[in-house]
């Protein structure tokens, strides 16, 4: 009971860490957090059929992100076994022009040179170029089992909104 605040905060950070993760192999872990079949996912007021669909889109169509939690508040709703969380965060996107897999849009020359930036070529992992911060509001409906260290399928609803955007970003949102 006493640690609920800290646990909620940690759990929210865990969710954002999953969103920021670029490793395809970790997607399964993230997926297991959502209640299978009936989790509701809303992204910028647009609903998703199921978590897999959302995570696929997030992996393939959103560049690398970096979320920072700013505020977390929560209420246990008596008799429902559910926790409602209201979260604000900020997020920035990798504006280097590369997707999560490190692939950019540049068309290579026949000899493979010229197009690659001077550094970051070869086997090195290309460095991310973080753009300016966007504002995020996130509402979660979680199973109170998270306070018993059980996270399997605990996310019942996930409502993610971008609430402000900087004008100097390269991203079209």
């Amino acid at each position: 009971m006493n640690q609920q605040g800290a646990i909620t905060d940690t759990f929210v950070k865990k969710v954002f860490a999953h969103l920021d993760n670029t490793d395809v192999n970790k997607l399964g872990d993230f997926l297991s957090l959502f209640q299978s079949g009936s989790a509701k996912i809303i992204l910028n007021s647009q609903p998703f059929g199921d978590p897999t669909q959302f995570l696929t889109l997030w992996q393939q169509q959103v560049v690398a992100t970096q979320h920072t939690v700013q505020s977390v508040d929560f209420h246990l709703i008596p008799g429902s076994g559910m926790v409602v969380c209201n979260v604000t965060a900020k997020v920035r996107f990798d504006e280097s022009g590369r997707d999560k897999a490190g692939v950019d849009a540049t068309i290579r020359d026949a000899n493979g040179s010229g197009a690659t930036p001077r550094r970051g070529a070869g086997n090195h992992t290309p460095r991310t170029q973080w753009g300016p911060y966007f504002g995020i509001s996130l509402q979660l409906v979680l199973n109170e089992s998270i306070y018993r260290n059980s996270f399997q399928g605990c996310i019942n609803a996930f409502n993610y909104s971008i609430v402000y955007k900087p004008s100097d970003t390269l991203m079209q949102v």
């Binding site: 509701k40 809303i42 992204l43 910028n44 007021s45 647009q46 609903p47 889109l57 169509q61 959103v62 560049v63 996107f93 504006e95 022009g97 590369r98 997707d99 692939v103 950019d104 849009a105 540049t106 068309i107 197009a115 909104s161 971008i162 609430v163 390269l170 991203m171 079209q172 949102v173």
Partner: peptide, 25 residues
């Protein structure tokens, strides 16, 4: 000379869903 794949470029620099003002289940 085409130096970038425009389709790829667009997908990299766009967030797949713009914030809409209203959603009701």
């Amino acid at each position: 000379v085409i130096v970038r794949d425009e389709t790829k470029l667009k997908s990299v620099y766009s967030f797949p869903a713009a914030k809409q003002p209203f959603f009701c289940e």
